[in-house]
């Protein structure tokens, strides 16, 4: 029974969104359903926070290896949540200077803004920056021009990397005007405008077809994996 109701809810939610562009009266329903979806998506963040709290508390109580790091995670989570929900250090919004809580939690000078600027941003951007080393290392080990496909991939990557930097201008700037199309910076533009456009367009169409077919499968209840257990 519970599964059947879940399948019906899935179908109704999907159909409401699908018919809204075709039925004027359904536009309002679609707006309401979208708002509800956004609320549930926000609730999912609360669920994620609760799950983190649960897992870290279990690790902490078990006193297993690395329990100190769990304590740190918990501390960071609770402090961030407290300053975020409590709008610590936030001044009132200019549109309502007498309402103390009217400011945004991430306004400059607030504790939440401080955490974002000095903790989250440096760590996350450095984590992505470090990937430059791993990408370079992996490319050095894996890139081998052993067939046409691999050679195309390798050559394109080189042309894009050189053509989008000053190195490309230095290396091929001497080419005469009648051969300017072969200059690396121009080759990079041609690759992006023609070959990359064609390839990306096909990928986008393929993904959209996949999304549409998966959506239909989900709505019709042919794919029930999200319900868990033996679907």
């Amino acid at each position: 029974m519970s599964r059947s109701i879940a399948l019906l809810i899935c179908l109704m939610g999907g159909l409401t969104m699908l018919v809204s562009p075709f039925l004027p009266m359904a536009t309002g329903w679609a707006n309401d359903v979208t708002d509800w979806f956004n609320i549930l998506a926000a609730m999912a963040f609360v669920l994620g926070g609760g799950s983190l709290l649960k897992v870290q508390l279990m690790r902490l109580s078990a006193r297993g290896p690395g329990w100190g790091y769990s304590a740190l995670t918990l501390l960071a989570f609770i402090v961030t949540l407290w300053v975020g929900l409590g709008k610590v250090g936030v001044v009132a919004d200019p549109s309502a200077p007498t309402v103390a809580w009217s400011g945004k939690p991430d306004d400059e000078g607030s504790a939440f803004w401080w955490i974002y600027l000095y903790v989250m941003t440096p760590i996350t951007s450095t984590l992505f920056a470090v990937l430059a080393f791993y990408v370079a290392s992996a490319a050095f080990r894996a890139f081998r021009a052993k067939n046409v496909e691999a050679t195309l991939l390798l050559a394109t990557a080189f042309v894009i990397l050189l053509g989008r930097t000053f190195a490309g201008v230095v290396l091929t700037g001497w080419l005469p005007d009648w051969a300017s199309g072969l200059r690396l910076e121009n080759l990079a533009v041609t690759i992006m405008d023609v070959f990359n456009t064609a390839g990306n367009r096909a990928i986008i169409i393929g993904i959209a077809l996949g999304v549409a077919s998966t959506g239909i499968r989900l709505m019709l209840g042919l794919d029930r994996s999200y319900l868990g257990g033996d679907a």
Partner: peptide, 16 residues
Amino acid sequence: SIVIGVSAGYWMAVAF
């Protein structure tokens, strides 16, 4: 450890 806790708290507060 810090970034895991901070990220969870940050996005939860933003969602709220």
